[in-house]
């Protein structure tokens, strides 16, 4: 026999992958055969259309237990009082929790509110959302424009900007805490350069700035990626037509790029808006809401009111979360409207 002859691969000893594939196939067909009789019997009874419900049922059950039911429970918590967890021990208080939350002489002056912490959190969140979303959209747009251009090692830079998105929020916060704390990297650099130590996380304004900065840093890659996709969806020949038309660069940007990117831009605005309202994890680890309540946002208020404080004011927290849900719902409807419009036009 010719020692150099290669035997056909399927008569040789199967590789691990082949054995796995074969095993998988056997298991799969076995399972399917086993499942067929009961499902066939069900289908005979309820018809082929009814089978849709059978297949959707597991998902719907999970959805109702873990999503729908908690939502209903949350409403019930919002309408009941006391620090008890069990429903039967909680007295019904109607809208008391809501009126306590909304009890303010002047909504712009937190000190005039009964729940000043809630309103501080609301004020902080509003400011945070405004600054963070503006910075997020502007920076991710600039990043996307740069990454969309003719750039050396473009793939590398795209990966670099997207990388923070892959990090766990806690990791993000710990990295930045390590940089910003009193004896952190940034202060070490400042002092090595002959500068003064700065209380980056203990001064209210600085610490607010860094919450915005870190959350933008962590999520910008995601929005830049969406915008990049939007930019690449703009036909290149429009830019060539504009070039032939002798259009200045800034005018190309404002008259062609921006209008055509607008649907994507709006999606980015709404998505980042919703996320900014929900901001919690990074900031909780980074500043803990401090100093004082300077960086305490609405979700942290809900968390602390319900779980962290010694008296668990579950009703108040549930009511606050419902108010936030309403705001988010409005924003979501807005986003759906916009993306629907984008599709039809």
């Amino acid at each position: 026999m010719n020692p150099n002859a290669h035997p056909p691969s399927d008569s040789a000893t199967p590789t691990a992958a082949q054995r796995f594939a074969r095993g998988f196939e056997l298991a799969y067909t076995g399972l399917m055969r086993a499942l067929e009789p009961p499902f066939a019997a069900i289908q005979k009874r309820i018809g082929i259309k009814g089978m849709a419900y059978v297949f959707v049922a597991p998902n719907m059950i999970i959805f109702s237990v873990f999503v729908a039911l908690p939502m209903i429970l949350n409403i019930w918590y919002a309408l009941t009082g006391s620090n008890r967890l069990m429903m039967e021990e909680r007295p019904f208080v109607g809208l008391d929790n809501f009126s306590a939350l909304l009890d303010c002489k002047d909504y712009l002056d937190v000190n005039s509110c009964k729940q000043d912490r809630f309103w501080r959190a609301v004020h902080n969140s509003v400011l945070f959302v405004a600054l963070q979303v503006t910075a997020m959209v502007a920076l991710s747009l600039v990043t996307a424009l740069i990454l969309n251009g003719k750039l050396r090692a473009r793939g590398f830079f795209r990966a670099v900007f997207f990388f923070p998105v892959l990090l766990s929020p806690v990791v993000v916060a710990l990295i930045w805490k390590w940089i910003l704390q009193r004896d952190g990297l940034l202060n070490a650099l400042l002092m090595a350069g002959g500068g003064e130590r700065v209380a980056f996380l203990h001064d209210a304004s600085w610490s607010f700035f860094w919450t915005v900065f870190v959350s933008v840093w962590a999520h910008m890659g995601f929005y830049a990626l969406i915008l990049l996709a939007g930019l690449q969806a703009i036909p290149a020949d429009l830019y060539e037509a504009a070039e032939m038309d002798g259009t200045p660069k800034w005018r190309v940007f404002w008259r062609i790029t921006v209008p055509l990117l607008l649907p994507t831009l709006l999606v980015v605005v709404i998505l980042s808006l919703i996320r900014a309202v929900q901001a919690f994890d990074e900031i909780y680890v980074l500043t803990g809401g401090g100093p004082g309540t300077a960086t305490q946002f609405i979700v942290q208020y809900i968390y602390e009111t319900a779980f962290a404080n010694q008296v668990h004011l579950l009703g108040l927290a549930a009511a606050a979360s419902l108010l936030v849900a309403v705001v988010l719902m409005v924003l979501t409807v807005l986003q759906l409207r916009i993306s629907y419009h984008g599709k039809t036009s």
Partner: peptide, 20 residues
């Protein structure tokens, strides 16, 4: 010269009309 400076006009296969 740049495209604009040449003073030419082009009709594209895809028309390249500004859709907005």
């Amino acid at each position: 010269h740049s495209a604009a400076a040449r003073g030419l006009a082009m009709v594209f296969q895809s028309y390249a009309l500004y859709p907005h």
